[in-house]
């Protein structure tokens, strides 16, 4: 306190000068119209600049919130997009072999998830039991066979593809009619193995393999692949089959419903 007084006493001249000038300035600005308006303009401009500066600075601190809000908005917009809507339409295409002779119905589905490089490969489609899909239905695509439905939920289904060691399908040579069992070779998503071909069967490289109806799974005459190479294995031929379906580019598939499947299963259960 003592020092404060000493300071004031020491600098009384400067302090008084400043005080008087400040008082004068306040008088000028408050009691003179032109000066008042000019000061108003200047101080407004100054305030505006300060405000914009502080806003510029504080905006950075709200970037997080702004980003969050934008992300939320985007999510909302995505939600309203066409591709975000689940397809609940149940449209089944009939193959009219002949009137009232329908055996197969086809349910189109979109591939949601796909794998080709695992030991057991599956794909997920956007149709489930709501759309009439059941376990053990076969799945095909325009270029060939895809796999078998192994599990269904209300809206989705899981399909075990050809690229799975548990998958086994009965095929036949399109030209000669001999049949064999096809399995995946476990390495290349393009190649499968056809085993236990009798030695008397004439095999040519490039022969076409199609499904036959023995397995009660696929409709017959669905494209499977072509013979890539073959070799003798003990008393049988084995052949590498180039699959016609490109599992890396699979997009839309058709789930096949066999209308006579139950009846045939019931009948064939007698054999066991």
């Amino acid at each position: 306190m003592k020092e404060l007084f000493a300071f004031i006493e020491k600098h009384s001249f400067i302090l008084l000068f400043l005080i008087l000038q400040i008082v004068s300035f306040i008088f000028i600005v408050n009691f003179n119209e032109p000066q008042k308006s000019r000061f108003g303009v200047v101080s407004n401009a100054f305030q505006g600049r300060i405000y914009s500066l502080t806003q510029k600075i504080t905006r950075y601190f709200y970037l997080d919130i702004a980003n969050q809000r934008l992300a939320d908005e985007n999510a909302k917009l995505y939600k309203n997009q066409e591709y975000s809507k689940f397809d609940h339409t149940i449209n089944i295409t009939h193959v009219d072999d002949a009137e009232n002779n329908q055996q197969y119905e086809y349910i189109p589905a979109k591939v949601l998830n796909n794998s080709t490089n695992k030991i057991q490969n599956y794909i997920t489609i956007n149709k489930g039991w709501k759309h009439g899909i059941e376990k053990n239905m076969s799945v095909i695509c325009p270029s060939g066979i895809v796999g078998v439905v192994v599990r269904t939920s209300k809206n989705f289904s899981l399909i075990m593809t050809v690229l799975n060691p548990h998958f086994r399908v009965s095929t036949k040579f399109k030209n000669s009619g001999f049949y064999g069992s096809l399995t995946w070779n476990g390495k290349d998503y393009k190649l499968a193995t056809l085993e236990e071909i009798p030695l008397h069967v004439i095999i040519n490289i490039g022969d076409t393999l199609v499904t036959n109806s023995y397995s009660n799974l696929f409709p017959s005459e669905i494209m499977v692949g072509t013979i890539e190479s073959f070799y003798q294995n003990n008393n049988f031929f084995s052949a590498d089959v180039r699959l016609s379906t490109d599992f890396k580019r699979i997009d839309y598939v058709y789930v096949v419903r066999d209308l006579y499947k139950k009846e045939r299963e019931n009948l064939e259960s007698f054999m066991q």
């Binding site: 001249f13 000068f17 008087l20 008082v23 004068s24 300035f25 008088f27 000028i28 003179n32």
Partner: peptide, 23 residues
């Protein structure tokens, strides 16, 4: 300083320009 301030202020009052002459 004080005398200057008050004389200026007095002139200001008479010509209605408060603060200008004082400053």
């Amino acid at each position: 300083l004080l005398l200057g301030f008050f004389s200026g202020l007095l002139i200001d009052v008479s010509v209605n320009s408060l603060g200008v002459h004082a400053s």
